[in-house]
């Protein structure tokens, strides 16, 4: 199973195994990874599963759709060039080891 690494703003980190085909948001919330809230349940509607993807991994992701881009303009924590909504990142075997940082706040 591919691994996903979450770095948190308090300096701690969490590594979890995820199933190929699941969204990173689902993997995080189903394993109680802190820092991901996902109030809307993965429908790209709330921008509370915001993450900063490690630069080395960012370009390997499927580019974001326009509505994700619109939502990222409304995140509570600052938007950065590597910001994504984790509900829109689908885990593949090529993403084994992907690293991302959770922002200091989602709401």
């Amino acid at each position: 199973m591919p691994k996903v690494n979450f770095l948190h703003d308090d300096g701690t980190s969490t590594t979890v195994d995820g199933d190929v085909g699941d969204s990173v948001m689902y993997i995080a919330t189903s394993r109680d990874v802190k820092g991901i809230e996902a109030e809307c349940g993965g429908f790209c509607n709330c921008a509370t599963c915001h993450v900063y993807v490690d630069e080395a991994w960012f370009d390997r992701l499927v580019p974001m759709a326009e509505h994700e881009n619109e939502l990222l303009d409304g995140t509570v924590a600052e938007r950065r060039p590597t910001s994504r909504l984790s509900c829109q990142i689908t885990l593949t075997s090529e993403l084994d080891g992907i690293t991302m940082t959770t922002p200091d706040r989602q709401t």
Partner: peptide, 20 residues
């Protein structure tokens, strides 16, 4: 189906999962 029937953002419908 990226509809906005439950709104979006901070006021995203609190009861959306119940409705679903």
């Amino acid at each position: 189906n990226n509809h906005i029937g439950f709104a979006a953002g901070k006021h995203f419908c609190l009861g959306a999962h119940l409705a679903r």
